[in-house]
Design a protein around this nucleic acid. Structure first.
Lengths: 209, 209
DNA sequence: GCCCTTGTTGTACGATCGTTCAATAGTGTT
DNA sequence: AACACTATTGAACGATCGTACAACAAGGGC
């Protein structure tokens, strides 16, 4: 113990942290609270409790609640894209293999989780009426699309002309993945994750000439 | 005028309606409020204002707010499925033509509308933490899936063996439609509705042997 | 040891929430 | 014309919301 205290007062009542560190903790607490309580988890008091922090601290680090939520949305987006990119590191260099790894990661934990999709859906529900969310959306969404489009571009380069143009193929594949996500999370008993992967593989198969 | 009034008191202050009629009006006001104000539209006061009705009336016709919301979700589901069924009436009897009409209806107003998807997303956000919503979901969702599966079954019967089993084909097509919905509504400038239809058609093409 | 900076606390405020309930009033029946 | 029924109103309640702010205290520099 660096500093002795009386038994009835066992230590500092709180710990000061660097601003960036605390901000990050609050962002993660926001997402955790969202997972636990759904849309009702997006409350200053719930997030504060989740972060083991007082009510007033959030407004010290974030000008407004909406700003914190927007940052949490950005973090959630970045975690998704980062996790998918990471899953591609171990894959073989062939575009087809990279796509396979991408599907595998998309339909495995931590992405394929009811709580995770519940978080996405709450964010999407804010989209139309929150300029902050819209801004983050436009800033981060293209990271996901570009990742997918890049792999399809590689596929085109490696295995000849595709039957569809690149743009439409990426749009369709994104839709298929997202839709299967949605369906599985709304009713996990409906089909197996590997069946979702098979459907995505079949989509890519149908692209190759 | 059935009943004369003084000029300063031009008529009854309110109109009594049959219970079912009022319930229906409140349900529609709920959805309209949701379109207008997003998740914040799901408030007794907003809905009351939207329905031109006092604050206390909702709890006279519905035991709780959640019950009203669940009924609104049921109505929204039924309107979707009903609208799609209606769109099939004028279509040629061939399964391929009926699917085409289905796609056309799916990617046209009133379904393909940012407000409409915003309503869906708010409902989905409630799903995991509202038993009422879950019950309605399980009661109504299969109407949509069965509609789609029925058309694919007809297709199988008319044009020989499909490359996929019926169950997976329906799951994948549902996912593709929903995902394209989502993508278009989140960024309508990204692609044209007719491109979404083309992607769905291509999916069906790839099913046919 | 004291001081300074500032991260942190917790109360307070006004707004809005869902729900309750006594009073009101529209409408059909007698 | 008086009545009964009940749909409807609107005030009131306690709870919770997001934010503001004055007071506190942790930790580093001297």
């Amino acid at each position: 113990m660096k500093r002795a205290r009386k038994a009835r007062n066992p230590g500092p009542r709180f710990e000061r942290k660097l601003a960036d560190e605390r901000r990050q903790a609050l962002i993660e607490a926001t997402i955790e609270s969202l997972k636990r309580h759904g849309h009702e988890g997006l409350s200053i008091r719930r997030i504060s409790a989740e972060a083991n922090v007082s009510i007033g601290l959030i407004n010290h680090h974030f000008p407004t609640k909406d700003a914190l939520v927007a940052e949490a949305y950005r973090h959630f987006n970045n975690e998704l894209v980062g996790g998918l990119r990471h899953a591609l590191i171990g894959a073989l260099p062939a575009a087809r293999e990279r796509l396979r790894a991408f599907f595998q990661a998309s339909f495995s934990p931590p992405n394929l989780d009811g709580d995770v999709l519940a978080v996405w859906v709450v964010f999407w529900g804010l989209y139309r009426h929150s300029p902050d969310i819209q801004r983050v959306q436009s800033e981060t969404y293209h990271g996901y699309v570009d990742l997918l489009r890049g792999m399809l571009a590689d596929l085109e380069r490696e295995s000849g002309k595709l039957r569809f143009n690149l743009r439409l193929a990426a749009i369709g594949l994104t839709a298929l993945i997202d839709g299967l996500w949605l369906e599985w999370c709304l009713d996990p008993d409906n089909f197996e994750p590997k069946e979702a992967i098979a459907l995505c593989e079949a989509w890519v198969d149908s692209l190759e000439s």
